[in-house]
Design a protein around this nucleic acid. Structure first.
Lengths: 337, 337
DNA sequence: TCATCGGATGTAATCGGTTACATGAAACCG
DNA sequence: CGGTTTCATGTAACCGATTACATCCGATGA
């Protein structure tokens, strides 16, 4: 690989001038600029990123903090793939690269510094945090160190932090309105874990719209699951035992909705004729499972692009972090309602 | 951030000694080593990766080449998420980081050098290639430049390249054996695109085992799909029109299998009583869809770990690349057969 | 005509490491 | 005891960029 000195030598200018051609072209005379660019193209010169990072302390790399252990359940983020794609293209449009942050080799697996160390060693400019559900001290350490952070699907703020989340309450309202419009009055819901913020928001929005229609959810009509299939199945089984039985159920996650549908079928009932089901997330299965799951979809691509934009704003060096982004949710009509 | 010189100064040794403590500790006397480590820990010293890369030309970073455009169909790799997790943890166990390679900003979107340039600028040590189905010249450019490469789910070799793939033929055999064992004789299959290597292998293995049982697939019993839902539906519709109708169908991908099941149901027939269906891949839906899809599963985690290991071998500087890895496939029994 | 200004470029220090080579001291050996 | 090893450490060049500051030169204005 040719270096900047090689280009300088061949063009008969100093290295400083070559550097300027690439960084602040406007201060270089047109002729010199073209001469240097010509030589650079000819010998295939590419500025070395490490050298650049060393000199500037900016790496043009964004870290993805996503502490996963595939031996533990719950490591999957439902939209990871979509988010990743969107994030990557949005970032690269700004000339940024995405580094999957592995814990620092020199740190123990539970060391709260394990991400910060990697970030510092690589001069990573900012990080995107994929919610792993737990308030990991290693993530908080990033905030404390004033690393620009954008959290996804997780309420997370700080002097250098902001977050992106769906309008979960709005999605809950959409679900309620849809069921009401379909004529249901006897309605129940399968929510998420008690401390889960998106789940709580979905429930709140759902309740709100029901209340406006004069429907109140009894305590027994709200059953908590853990977002996985079996919990949806179990919850639905309990709901079917209610008397009178609900005619419609809103599940705070699609996988639980699928579990619910399974339970309904097992009880010898039909979807949507006996019980209508609406989910949340619009995961791949929703479209594939018969009779098709009506659901509230999140703007997965939006997560990625919004994260990139918030990050860009922080990297531009604003005094305060950008306000949290709320992404709209949409109703997807399928056969289950 | 403290530098190596700071550590050297405080420990009263030279920077070379500090460097040795971290890179070749065995050549440093015990006392000096402990002294230096103590000082380093005290002031929170971490070697800077850019400086290190600049000096050694090794970045400890592995690039993930995965050229996706979410506006085009087919950008999803079915196992990406699983592979990613496994790859990340396997790599970080070796102290390597994973960089999602964005095309070089200075290169056009179709520039065959767009990945190579990024690789070179960042001194990326090696790359993992996620098959996007097309023989992208930008990927070939990496091979030509002798970058250590490991391709996933794609037959791809070269002086610095190897690949990881499932035992697709074996999987095809498993599927055939299973259907035969279940007593089926009138069997058909939905295969993938003609030029798709894994699909061809699956078909070959499937045929082979059928032949051993004295069953031959008529041309009309082999219908090609594109791995997506609708093509499975369409293919199945054609197969149901055959006379006599097949009693069992092997789909080379789960999503096509789901489409097939849909078509079967729409024809007023039952799975598995009238037609049994077996898929391939074991994607999430397979477990969720009623009656549960019997399928051949690939070792997704294995893709990640095998890729990491092959890469490590190449980075260790062997003369020839490691032999391609074939991952075993397994039959997952569910309700559809 | 000369001081002044500003635009283009060069000089050289710097970023934070690695490593070939040099040095010095202790150990070993005939 | 002198010479040779061996081991631990230091010296300093080098990796490839950026950038503060210096310099040069032609244009401008009094």
């Amino acid at each position: 690989m040719s270096s900047i000195r090689e280009v300088a030598r061949r063009s008969g200018v100093s290295v400083a001038t070559v550097s300027r051609v690439f960084n602040t072209p406007e201060v270089v005379s047109r002729q010199t600029r073209q001469l240097v660019l010509g030589v650079a193209a000819e010998i295939g010169y590419l500025p070395n990123e490490s050298a650049r990072t060393l000199a500037t302390k900016k790496s043009n790399m964004v870290g993805l903090v996503w502490d996963t252990d595939h031996r533990r359940p719950g490591w999957r983020h439902p939209f990871l793939q979509d988010i990743l794609v969107a994030l990557k293209s949005a970032l690269s449009a700004h000339g940024l690269h995405l580094l999957m942050l592995a814990p620092d080799p020199g740190a123990g697996p539970a060391d709260p510094q394990r991400f910060l160390r990697t970030v510092q060693r690589h001069d990573v400019d900012g990080v995107v945090i994929i919610d792993n559900g737990s308030r990991d001290p290693a993530v908080l350490a990033l905030v404390d160190a004033a690393v620009p952070c954008v959290a996804l699907d997780l309420q997370f703020t700080g002097p250098t932090c902001t977050y992106i989340a769906s309008d979960n309450a709005g999605g809950g309202r959409l679900a309620a309105a849809h069921l009401i419009e379909r004529g249901h009055r006897r309605i129940a819901t399968i929510t998420g874990p008690a401390r889960n913020w998106p789940a709580a928001q979905r429930l709140a929005g759902f309740r709100e719209t029901l209340a406006e229609a004069g429907i109140t959810l009894a305590d027994d009509d709200v059953v908590a699951g853990d977002f996985y299939l079996d919990s949806g199945h179990a919850a639905m089984t309990r709901l079917l035992a209610r008397d009178p039985r609900p005619t419609a159920v809103f599940a705070a996650g699609d996988e639980m909705a699928v579990g619910a549908i399974k339970a309904i079928h097992e009880a010898g009932l039909r979807v949507p004729d006996d019980v209508a089901v609406i989910g949340f997330d619009d995961i791949e299965v929703a479209a594939l499972i018969p009779p098709g799951l009506t659901t509230v979809t999140q703007d997965k691509i939006g997560f990625g692009t919004a994260a990139a934009e918030s990050l860009m704003a922080m990297l531009a060096g604003t005094a305060t972090p950008p306000a949290p982004t709320t992404l709209p949710t949409t109703l997807i009509l399928r056969g289950s309602t």
